[in-house]
Design a protein around this nucleic acid. Structure first.
Length: 478
RNA sequence: UCCCCGAUAGCUCAACCGGUAGAGCGCCGGACUGUUAAUCCGUAGGUUCUUGGUUCGAAUCCAAGUCGGGGAGCCA
């Protein structure tokens, strides 16, 4: 029966015979016929030091095969280690090489690698310290998120991945179709209409979507919010947690074409309740991950981001700053800072403005509320001043926006008016409007980007290193 | 999509004014060692991203493209 290395290092009593399996990180060989093998199975940040000597059957042959990247099974006695660096070590009685790894070809060396290089080795990078730690922290974050909502009676609702409402408004959609595009292009060409000289279809080409799989144009979801509202207005507090897709040509350290989003939606919540939940949620998740993954976070603090632990303590231990967009604009105008983009009421805040607020002025997470209605979505509840809506953005140092949310417009007539203002056809949102027609209630919700949370908690700079297999423009391997 | 930068050994990078390619690490071999990113000595390892251009001569200059990085926008 296999024992996990995490258990060997923490739970198993010295003197116990254990069977351990994993991948070789390094081997330090002595000519005096023994060797140290650094073995990692992913269960812990730390590896287990295996001491192997010539008492092992076939030692001379086997030890040559124990190279970085090889998989091995070791049975032996767990003993207290006489040397520094580890409390316990495994004295091998038998050694079996399960799978060799040619050291001349194995891409992962004993030295550090650039993240750019490791992204090209996404099938092997979880075997590194950094990406093993990222995987465990990411898992702990997801677990903490589910626990947080489950303990508070929220229902986990599965929003659809495929959506035919072309108008969710949160970004450009990836199209989902079973139409034969090559055949359509060919048809178009043979008709001699609507094709450019290169043969590429042009805008004049009209597709008959009634022939498509769903009978209408379909795409991958950009948000589960509208569907979550349906359940909030029926079964009560709920949340979605699933993949989200944006076909934007975004090339930044904080955007992915495929990412995971958590979207809680609560009936009878006004904006203040929404803010309180968002803050408590973020702070609680950080605390739980700090408690669950101390070794991994210590590594990130030591090797990736030296201010990480201090900033997590700061975020989890202090109230978020809450202020309105208008107050934020005042602070920015009076700051004396010269910004590349000028600050003016009515314009959306730029990254540099948000960073100034969170990193220099307050040095803490900030919740901004009540943005100008012109720069926010139709579904956000209009304030009585006629100028602003009940929006909220949670901004954190280093990352920027980690949560976007709002109180939703629950008044039927106002919602229709807002749709028209935003150039949307209310007919497309008939079911969304019916929620306001039949038993409407005040309600609120927000969206938390999972990968941005991973960025925040690990200190990793690039969001492409916060998801196992990142999808970005021109990149969707593995 | 826009702006800037980059692409040279397995990896990280160097190569001055255009003159025929170099280091560290890794691998391999040796020495040494309760070692732990071990250390020391040595060997091997190159279509300088692609295509075209300028030139007696291009890693180096020019153009286009591809990919990568940083910033911006879009946002989570």
């Amino acid at each position: 029966m296999r024992t996990r290395i995490a258990d060997c290092l923490t739970k198993v009593a010295p003197g116990t015979i254990v069977d351990v399996r994993g991948w070789v990180r390094t081997r330090r060989e002595s000519k005096q016929e023994f060797a140290f093998i650094e073995l990692n199975d992913g269960s812990s940040f730390h590896s287990l030091q295996v001491v192997a000597d010539k008492s092992i059957p076939d030692y001379e042959t086997l030890i040559k095969l124990v190279q970085t990247g090889a998989s091995v099974a070791v049975v032996g006695e767990l003993k207290e280690s006489p040397a520094k660096g580890q409390k316990v070590e495994l004295h091998a009685q038998s050694l079996k090489v399960l799978g060799q790894a040619d050291a001349a070809k194995y891409p992962l060396q004993k030295k550090g690698h650039s993240f750019e290089f490791l992204r090209e080795k996404a099938h092997l990078r979880p075997r590194t310290n950094t990406f093993g730690a990222m995987a465990r922290v990411r898992n702990a974050i997801c677990h903490a998120i589910h626990c947080y909502f489950q303990q508070r009676g929220f229902l986990y609702v599965h929003a659809p991945i495929i959506s035919t409402s072309d108008c969710e408004g949160a970004g450009h959609m990836f199209q989902v179709t079973t139409l034969d595009l090559a055949k359509l292009a060919q048809l178009q060409q043979s008709k001699g209409t609507g094709a450019s000289p290169s043969g590429a279809p042009t805008a004049s080409m009209e597709i008959d979507y009634t022939k498509d799989f769903f009978g209408k144009k379909a795409g991958l979801t950009v948000s589960g919010q509208l569907e979550a509202e349906i359940f909030a207005c029926s079964v009560g507090d709920c949340y979605t947690f699933g993949p989200t897709f944006r076909a934007e040509n975004s090339n930044t350290t904080r955007h992915l074409a495929e990412f995971w989003m958590i979207e809680p939606e609560m009936p009878f919540y006004e904006l203040e309740d929404n803010m309180a939940l968002a803050e408590d949620f973020v702070r609680t998740v950080i605390k739980e991950v700090m408690a669950k993954c101390p070794d991994d976070l210590q590594f990130f603090n030591d090797r990736i981001e030296p201010t990480l632990l201090a900033s997590l303590e700061n975020i989890s231990g202090n109230d978020f700053i809450k202020l309105t967009y208008t107050e934020a604009v005042d602070i920015l105008l009076k700051s004396g800072q010269t910004f590349e983009y000028p600050v003016a009421w009515g314009k959306d805040l730029q990254s540099e403005h948000e960073r100034f607020l969170t990193e220099q002025h307050f040095k803490q997470p900030v919740i901004l509320t009540d943005y100008p209605r012109e720069i926010k979505s139709f579904y956000m509840r209009a304030n009585d001043d006629g100028k602003t809506v009940r929006a909220m953005d949670v901004l954190v140092p280093r990352i920027g926006e980690i949560i976007g949310g709002s109180q939703r417009e629950e008044r039927h007539d106002v919602l229709i008016q807002r749709m028209q203002e935003c150039g949307l056809d209310p007919a497309d949102y008939w079911w969304y409007l019916e929620l306001r027609e039949y038993g409407t209630v005040p309600h609120s919700g927000f969206g938390l980007g999972l990968e941005r949370t991973v960025q925040l908690i690990t200190g990793m700079q690039n969001i492409r290193d916060c998801i196992p297999f990142p999808r970005t423009p021109k990149s969707a391997d593995f």
